[in-house]
Amino acid sequence: MTVLVGFVPTPEARAALDAGIAEAARRGEGVLVLNSSRGGAPVSVEVADEDTLRDITARAERAGVAVEVRQVTREGEVADEVLRVAREVDASVIVIGLRKRSPVGKLLMGSSAQRILLDADRPVLAVKP
């Protein structure tokens, strides 16, 4: 059983990472950090760079938690990817970061967090920074 953390280089996701590591420590499980980025362009803001990746492993090690970092390129939506990986590793809990959105933002851009919350078949921990 693992704690699955959906990660992108944003403050919300970093908060989720810390919460996820703490949760994994509490449960005595390992943590799988999933950094999924949308393919199709040479550059994506969702990709965590090397420094960030090193920081992730360092934080996990400090907390004494086993960590695996997965960087994948996806074709579709992030919610589907997170849920797919959760099923694959049979995650005990999914940890995601929540962003405050204006009503217009919510209308125009939708929410992958919302989809994960609604469609998940296991507990979801939504974290705010």
């Binding site: 393919g39 362009a41 040479p42 550059v43 803001v45 990709v47 390129t73």
Partner: peptide, 10 residues
């Protein structure tokens, strides 16, 4: 094409 490596912004 199937897209692969995506990089972080430099």
């Amino acid at each position: 094409e199937r897209h692969h490596a995506v990089r972080a912004p430099a």
